[in-house]
């Protein structure tokens, strides 16, 4: 297992460097420059700023300098915000996004698994159909619509929850529900299908033939096997949430990373674009590694195939 993870980390670093390089050159293809749209700047000032941030150097030199700094963990400074460190900006913005993302994933996964399991165990019953209706709605209604509806009814009409902003737990409830709706729907549908598949397997009959109670059959033999594919979709789902929160953060005026990311592209703030992209990539790569490690923990067949030590 140790050697397996070691190998994976090396390939992660290579992936990360490729993403960094590609993003750098793609970013250079963006129309406009960081300082051309600010009417208050004189031409001399723009030349000075370009010189100061090394934007007059050949692209190859800029790339080399960027990568050199990246290796020592220096993401550079923002062009728009008085030269503040990119890492500082990400640091103060990530808190809200991470909190929201984590809360939504945990809530959505728990409810989703629960609904999926119930639907499968009560296959073709009212409960099953009800759950699947919820799931289809959750997938087909965009979460910004759910967010808008909640703001109108829960926030404005009934005054139960604050409409927007970021100031304590009550402010997290509506955005969390909006984001979690996709998680609940996706996981419930998937878990139901997997449970039904596993319940039809021969080893479930074997377990019943041992005289185990139906609870024991479900908990010990069904859920574990049904959750293996769930872990696979968790990776992409987590990443989808990170991008999904961009919109939700805008709607609820949450000072998160998503909002900053969108603005930095609008203003050609190269270091912020690079910094946030790399941050998201790193998160993605780590999530995929975690998924694979989890896979190995749950499924012994993969554990032994992967780690030959």
């Amino acid at each position: 297992m140790g050697r397996y993870i070691g190998g994976r980390v090396v390939s992660m670093i290579i992936t990360f460097l490729i993403i960094a390089s590609l993003t750098f050159f793609l970013m250079k293809l963006l129309p406009g420059t960081p300082f051309n749209n600010q009417e208050k700047l004189t031409d001399t000032q723009i030349v000075q700023l370009n010189e100061k941030y090394g934007l007059n150097d050949p692209v190859a030199v800029q790339y080399f300098n960027y990568m050199k700094n990246l290796f020592v963990g220096d993401l550079g400074v923002s062009f728009q915000q008085d030269g503040r460190e990119v890492s500082t900006i990400i640091g103060e913005r990530i808190g809200a996004s991470a909190y929201l993302g984590f809360q939504s994933i945990v809530l959505g996964t728990i409810i989703g698994l629960f609904l999926g399991i119930i639907a499968a165990l009560r296959h073709n019953s009212f409960l099953d159909y009800g759950t699947m209706v919820i799931a289809v709605l959750g997938i087909s209604i965009p979460n910004f619509v759910i967010a808008g509806l909640m703001q109108y009814w829960l926030g404005v009409k009934w005054g139960l929850l604050p409409v927007a902003y970021w100031d304590g737990f009550a402010y997290t409830i509506m955005p969390t529900i909006a984001i979690a709706s996709i998680v609940v729907a996706t996981i419930a549908r998937f878990m139901r299908t997997e449970m039904l598949e596993v319940l039809g397997q021969d080893y479930i009959t074997t377990a019943k033939a041992k005289g185990l109670s139906s609870t024991a059959v479900v908990i010990r033999h069904t859920i574990r096997n049904a959750s293996i594919p769930i872990i696979t979709i968790m990776g992409p789902l987590v990443v989808a949430l990170m991008t999904g929160t961009l919109v939700i953060e805008q709607i609820f005026v949450i000072p998160g990373l998503g909002e900053k990311f969108v603005n930095s592209i609008m203003t050609n703030d190269f270091p912020i674009i690079m910094g946030t992209t790399l941050f998201y990539s790193l998160l993605f790569i780590v999530v995929i590694l975690l998924v694979d490690v989890m896979y190995g923990i749950i499924d012994p067949r993969i554990r032994l195939a992967g780690g030959k030590d």
């Binding site: 019943k208 005289g211 185990l212 010990r220 293996i228």
Partner: peptide, 24 residues
């Protein structure tokens, strides 16, 4: 019936490749 199954009457199935739980 659960008390009888597996203790007084038990069963062997056709396909050993699928009748064992792969994760246990």
């Amino acid at each position: 019936m659960q008390k009888i199954r597996g203790s007084e009457i038990s069963m062997i199935f056709q396909d050993p490749m699928t009748s064992l739980n792969p994760t246990m």
